[in-house]
């Protein structure tokens, strides 16, 4: 098992190297001149040159790349010019925020989409099936920033049910001691229920926005694999042997339909982690997505490179995890190198 994991990680290496090279090149061809931007509003050409030298941007591309890789090997991702902090520190503080939001969105998506999918499969072709499809599809049909803004307008501005869209906590709550970085979990560990409540309230709208986006793929996959399972031999046998429909659906069909759903979940998660970029912007969520977008707009290379690399590593790890999980659900599946 361990050697399989190791071998599998080894095959991910070329991917990571590819990501590093592509990101490096992509950030260098961005039109913005970092030096000019950070030299300030009154910069003379000499002042810009000075900043350039300070940032090491006056060197040739290969030289810059070598020094970037050298630093990378030491775990140094450079410093962000727009936050003034090291990228490692920024990502460490921001990644949990994104992960918490994404997981919340995913959980919400599962809770709604899996029953929808099952229902649609069981009542295949009926109006319930069509309704499920329309609902799930409607969720992905609006740009996330727009649905996010609509939710804020409705539930905060109009109705006043949701708390102000000001990030992970309202202004007068203090963040719990960081253990996992997830406010919900940390506040529970600290038995600080006031903070838990505050963090939970802040999380609802962005998680719903994101969850809506996760509906369609999960529902679609659940429906498809349920249909396949329902028409399979063993389910027919189970039905024939007089088991209740409920038992057949839950015990036999659903368990077998889970496998492809889990794969989908993994992909939905990594997709959401990337897609929450815009949600974070709308809800002033201090995650890595909004961080990367701002950095990209400002031609601030280091955070973009750090972000992409982090996401790529996460992606590789996640796929590995899914493969392992696959093995657990279905022992016949072996991790392939």
């Amino acid at each position: 098992m361990l050697s399989q994991i190791a071998r599998r990680l080894l095959t991910a290496l070329p991917t990571l190297i590819g990501v590093i090279i592509v990101t490096f090149l992509l950030t260098r061809v961005l039109p913005g001149d970092t030096a000019a931007y950070f030299a300030g509003p009154a910069a003379t050409p000499q002042a810009i040159e000075e900043v350039k030298k300070k940032l090491g941007l006056d060197r040739s591309l290969p030289v810059q790349f070598v020094s970037y890789v050298e630093a990378l090997a030491k775990g140094d991702l450079g410093a962000s010019l727009s936050t003034g902090q090291t990228v490692v520190k920024d990502i460490r503080t921001r990644l949990p925020a994104s992960a918490e939001l994404t997981l919340a969105g995913l959980v919400l998506g599962i809770v709604v989409a899996v029953p929808l999918g099952i229902l649609a499969a069981v009542r295949q072709g009926s109006w319930i099936d069509h309704l499920c499809r329309v609902v799930a599809t409607a969720g992905v049909s609006l740009p996330v920033f727009f649905s996010g803004l609509l939710l804020v307008y409705l539930f905060y501005y109009r109705l006043g049910w949701a708390p102000p869209p000001m990030g992970r906590l309202d202004v007068f709550s203090t963040a719990p001691n960081s253990i996992t970085g997830f406010y919900l979990i940390d506040s529970l560990i600290a038995r600080d229920f006031e903070t838990f409540r505050a963090a939970f309230a802040q999380l609802i709208l962005p998680a719903v926005t994101l969850g809506m986006f996760a509906l369609a793929p999960i529902a679609r996959m659940t429906r498809a694999s349920m249909l396949a399972a329902l028409s399979s031999e063993f389910v027919r046998t189970a039905k024939a042997s007089g088991l209740s429909t409920r038992a057949v659906i839950v015990t036999y069909a659903f368990r077998n339909a889970m496998l492809p759903v889990v794969t989908t979940l993994g992909m939905v998660f990594s997709f959401l982690l990337g897609a929450n970029v815009l949600v974070e912007k709308v809800f002033a969520w201090p995650g890595i997505g909004s961080y990367a977008v701002d950095a990209l707009i400002k031609s601030d290379f280091a955070p973009v490179q750090g972000f992409v690399l982090t996401m790529a590593i996460l992606y590789v790890m996640l796929n590995l995890l899914i493969d392992i999980l696959y093995g657990v659900i279905d022992p016949r599946v072996r991790i392939e190198a």
Binding site: V152, Y156, M166, K281, S290
Partner: peptide, 15 residues
């Protein structure tokens, strides 16, 4: 506090 969306800033003030 930094709130990137202008519409949200206005909403925060109004409320």
């Amino acid at each position: 506090r930094m709130v990137p969306d202008a519409g949200n800033r206005r909403a925060l003030l109004e409320r």
